[in-house]
C-alpha cells in the first residue's frame, strides 16, 4: 500500500482540528436533560381501594385488546402481575402485614405503570430516538422510528416497556403513554387518573406534587412512611408514590438515586464527542504506520513505498 506524505498530512491536519474541539466538549460534566416543570402523578397507596377502574379506563383510552380476565374479577389479585404489551397499567394486591379490628389482613394495592423518569434510561438507550422525553413530562414512543432492538427494555430499571413478541413484522414497544394526547389538552387528565373514584392518583405539576406529598407526610407522620418513591429514584420520576407500608414489601424495586444514563452517557461523550478519541487514535496509528513504512523504505534503499 502507498502512504504518501501529502495525503498523510492532509488527514492528520483534519483530525487534529477535530481533536481540539472534542476534548473541550468532553471535559464538560454530564448535565441532566430533564424538563424543568413536567406534569406528574402522585399515587397515595393508602387511598387506593383496588377497584381496577384505572386498568379499565386505560384499556379503553388506549384502545387496547380486551383482557383475558374481566376487570371486575378479583381473581387477578391472586397473582403478581406486571404491565405487558396488552396492559399499560395493572393493580396488584399486597399485604401490609397489618390486621384490622375484624382480624382481616389489610391489603395494600399498588398501581404499576411507566414511571416517566425525569432522565429516562430508555430514552438514552433508544438507538433511533424513538423514545423521547417531552417538556410535559411524558416519555413518548414513536413506533415510526423504532427498529425493535429492545435496548430500551434492557435499560429500564423498572422493567416497564413490553414487547409485541407475537407480531412478526411490525411489533411495537408498549408502555403507558401518560395519556399524552389527553394531557396536552387544557385541563386534560390521564384516563386512569380521571376515573379513579378516590383520587388515589393526584395529577399536576411534579414540583407541586412533591410539596403536596411532603405536606401529607409531615401532617400525618405516624401514618405515612418517610419516603416519596420517585422523588429520587433513578434521578426522579414523574410518577411518584407515598405509602403507609415500606415500599420493599410492596414489590417496589430499589433503584439508585442517580439518573440511570449518567454513567453511560458520560463515558460515551467523554470518549466520543466530536470523535476526538478515534481521531487521536487514527493520528497515532497513522504516525506509527508512516514511521514503520519509512524505516522499511530505507531498508530497501529508498524505493517507493508499496507492499
Amino acid at each position: 500500500m502507498e502512504l504518501n506524505r501529502r495525503g498523510f498530512f492532509k488527514v492528520m491536519g483534519a483530525t487534529s482540528a477535530l481533536l481540539s474541539a472534542g476534548m473541550g466538549k468532553a471535559r464538560a460534566a454530564w448535565v441532566s436533560k430533564a424538563p424543568p416543570d413536567p406534569y406528574g402523578c402522585l399515587v397515595d397507596l393508602t387511598r387506593c381501594v383496588g377497584c381496577r377502574k384505572c386498568e379499565e379506563a386505560c384499556n379503553d383510552a388506549n384502545s387496547l385488546p380486551p383482557p383475558d380476565i374481566p376487570f371486575d374479577d378479583p381473581v387477578v389479585f391472586e397473582t403478581d402481575r406486571r404491565p405487558d404489551e396488552k396492559t399499560y397499567t395493572i393493580v396488584n394486591r399486597h399485604s401490609s402485614g397489618k390486621i384490622d379490628d375484624r382480624d382481616k389482613l389489610v391489603p395494600v394495592f399498588t398501581k404499576v405503570q411507566c414511571m416517566h423518569c425525569q432522565d429516562p434510561a430508555c430514552v438514552s438507550a433508544c438507538i433511533a430516538g424513538a423514545l423521547t422525553k417531552k417538556e410535559n413530562g411524558t416519555v413518548h414512543y414513536d413506533a415510526g422510528r423504532c427498529i425493535g432492538c429492545r435496548y430500551c427494555m434492557v435499560a429500564c430499571p423498572f422493567e416497564i416497556p413490553a414487547y409485541e413478541y407475537t407480531n412478526p413484522i411490525t411489533p411495537k414497544v408498549q408502555k403507558c403513554t401518560f395519556c399524552f394526547d389527553r394531557i396536552i389538552r387544557e385541563g386534560g387528565k390521564p384516563a386512569c387518573v380521571a376515573v379513579c373514584p378516590v383520587e388515589a392518583i393526584t395529577f399536576g405539576k411534579r414540583n407541586i406534587l412533591l410539596v403536596l406529598a411532603k405536606n401529607k407526610i409531615s401532617d400525618l407522620p405516624a401514618k405515612y412512611i418517610q419516603h416519596i418513591y420517585g422523588e429520587h429514584e433513578a434521578g426522579g420520576t414523574s410518577w411518584m408514590y407515598i405509602s403507609d407500608t415500606p415500599f420493599e414489601k410492596l414489590g417496589f424495586t430499589k433503584v439508585i438515586p442517580e439518573p440511570i444514563p449518567r454513567l453511560s452517557e458520560t463515558v460515551q461523550h467523554s470518549l466520543f464527542s466530536y470523535l476526538w478519541s478515534p481521531a487521536l487514535l487514527y493520528g497515532l496509528l497513522g504516525g506509527i504506520m508512516w514511521t514503520t513504512n519509512k524505516a522499511k523504505n530505507k531498508d530497501k534503499g529508498g524505493s517507493d513505498a508499496s507492499s
Binding site: 438507550a125 438507538i127 422510528r145 427498529i147 432492538c149 460515551q268
Partner: peptide
C-alpha cells in the same frame, strides 16, 4: 441482528434518526 430485531425492515432507520446518547447507536 436482522433476525433478532423486531422490525428487521427498519434496520436502516438509525442512519437517519440519530441518538448520539445511545451506545447502541454508536
Amino acid at each position: 441482528l436482522i433476525v433478532d430485531i423486531g422490525r428487521s425492515w427498519a434496520i436502516w432507520k438509525p442512519m437517519f434518526f440519530w441518538n448520539t446518547n445511545s451506545v447502541l447507536f454508536e
